[in-house]
Design a protein around this nucleic acid. Structure first.
Lengths: 353, 353
DNA sequence: GAGAAAACTGCAATCGATTGCACCGCGCGG
DNA sequence: CCGCGCGGTGCAATCGATTGCAGTTTTCTC
């Protein structure tokens, strides 16, 4: 019935331990889960047996019995993106501190893969889901529905959208974008290029909304040149080329992430346009490299690790008490001014030069 | 005994499906695993029942019965490092194509965490382990021992070291480093700074070995200035400052990763030392940003994704047939020459100037 | 020192799926 | 017309741990 101690490499079971210690499996189990209810003498015998056999409980068995997995599923659009990597790091850290393991899904922005991973929830491979994309997979939506009126163990990171019916953690993207624009306007810019992300995502739309609102307040909405990007360096380069070759070129560019900002800087350099003297560039996220490129990027800093940690906290709360819907959490951002922004060149400085 | 179909959000079991379809659980199971052995009529009835109840097999139960988890554990020293992130992406992709899920462990270079994750193997939470650090956790080493003479399902990425007794996938670090030095020597440099990684890791030692060998061949071993770094941008900055303030400053610096190279470039800029005119800089890895910084980095490109994919293939082979020890795999690297290297300034060009 | 309460420990059911073996019925050959 | 073979299905054991309940021992209390 049970396996050999170590010969053959087979792992020992709780039965083997119980036999060796001369107790029942119940006692062994209790030694591991609630040691204080077991007599010290017995406990020591059991612990010794556990050590002798180098026993470790089989978690599939435990998961089956307890109907929990001790795992959190995290889906990320692209791990190789430093922004997501940092959030993921925060998630991993918080999860493991809470005794949970992380199941990683890199969806590569692919809806099929998102669905496939969401299925894992149904199969009870994970106790909850944190998704960083902007789509709520069908399988997850179904879960939300069937669990209602209790809260499903699903949390979003970054992409808040109230109609998803799922709580999330994010910054105030509209406000952050407005602040970035404020900074540029305060320096004296009026004609500003905006390199957005894919406009499907609420995140990009919020930023664009904030950008537009600020421009409108400045009566400079017509001076906005909006170019859609995809968050890659390359799309930043392309956008930069387009902006710089325009007849009436902008004196500043606001990019919806740092990588595209790096791309714009690169495009500027290729055309011998100096940053920030001739072109100011603002990024978003404040990834690690932002402060180490030349010139260091002015950008909106997001608390990536904290976003990750908070999603975990939120998910754990739901797991603990699904009756209570957590309220979406908005974390603070900061405008970090560095060397990539400056007043526009004199010749373009129309007002009050 | 069984759960309600959907009311209450409880999930249905194979018993519920069997009952609804009027068959035994065995048949339901077979419909899912080997559909062709079931009569089409029955099969359709079962499939219908599965759909009606939106049934999904509980994987804890399956894992328990089959003694497999369908998961691969991957431990990474630091996910926020783009180098590891890309390898991880390769791993994730290959794993999921093979029907495996990835359990992620970010060890933060911390031995305790490495141990903790390795425990998961003992608990059968994963079928195998891919570790990207340089230490083989004790628990894993133990497994290697108890499984011997069969091969343990453990594979290393990047840090090959034959005495671990574990196969791995990596590049020829010594040779790559030698090529980097070759490039510098060919340009006419003699006095070269070397910013290494932590010398505990075989990877760093191999690169250092290659570096030294090449220098020796050039009779320039005394012209090597070796400074230990830790792979962070900051340590690159520090090393750069040290090298540039030396009495007899080097005309070139070889860094064991791109981030430290970026740090050195930054330090040079801070002192108004032009790169590459006054100082050549070579990196290692060719992370995405390497080609987009100013100047674009000359570096050794590693096939990150392929390394990740290969570790998975190797692990799957072991899982399939533990009798066969895979041979460690060496993948090709490439020296990519970009704008950060050039001949040394004339005044330092001793030979044949 | 008897009786009640408290503290331990064990029995056995249970979690949900998989699978070897046995069984049934049908078709075909003799 | 009988029997063999085979495809299809079901029975029931099994994977390994957890835990409610019951039984046993110990510890008090008076």
């Amino acid at each position: 019935m049970m396996c050999a101690p170590f010969p053959g490499g087979t792992v020992s079971t709780i039965y083997a331990v119980a036999k060796r210690a001369g107790v029942s499996t119940a006692t062994v189990s209790r030694v591991l889960s609630r040691p204080q209810v077991v007599t010290p003498t017995t406990r020591d015998r059991v612990l010794q047996a556990i050590e002798d056999l180098s026993y470790a409980p089989n978690s599939a068995a435990r998961n089956l019995r307890t109907l929990k997995s001790g795992k959190l599923l995290v889906t990320v659009p692209d791990i190789s993106n430093p922004f997501f990597a940092l959030i993921l790091q925060g998630i991993e850290d918080a999860a493991q501190r809470a005794g949970y393991a992380v199941l990683l899904g890199d969806t590569q922005h692919n809806a099929k893969r998102e669905e496939r991973y969401a299925q894992m929830l149904k199969h009870k491979e994970a106790d909850g889901l944190i998704f960083l994309g902007h789509r709520l997979p069908k399988a997850a939506a179904e879960l939300v529905r069937t669990l209602s009126p209790r809260c499903a163990p699903i949390v979003n990171g970054c992409e808040f959208s109230p109609h998803l019916g799922v709580p999330g953690v994010h910054i105030d993207n509209a406000k952050a974008a407005a602040e970035a624009m404020d900074h540029l306007y305060a320096l004296g810019h009026r004609r500003v290029g905006v390199v957005t992300g894919p406009l499907l995502s609420p995140l990009s739309r919020d930023r664009l909304r904030g950008t537009r609102a600020r421009a409108a307040a400045q009566h400079a909405e017509d001076e906005l040149i909006i170019i859609p990007g995809d968050f890659s360096i390359e799309s930043g380069v392309t956008a930069g080329e387009e902006l710089l070759s325009a007849a009436n070129r902008p004196t500043a560019v606001f990019c919806f992430n740092d990588e595209m900002a790096m791309g714009v800087v690169e495009a500027a350099r290729a055309r011998d346009v100096r940053v920030p003297e001739e072109l100011s560039v603002v990024g978003f996220d404040d990834i690690r490299f932002a402060s180490h490129v030349n010139p260091p990027l002015t950008t909106i800093a997001q608390p990536m690790r904290e976003i990750g940690e908070s999603t975990v906290r939120m998910l754990l709360m739901i797991l603990e008490n699904p009756e209570i819907y957590p309220v979406p959490l908005t974390l603070p951002h900061t405008l970090v001014v560095r060397g990539s922004t400056a007043p526009p060149p004199e010749r373009h400085f129309a007002v009050g030069g």
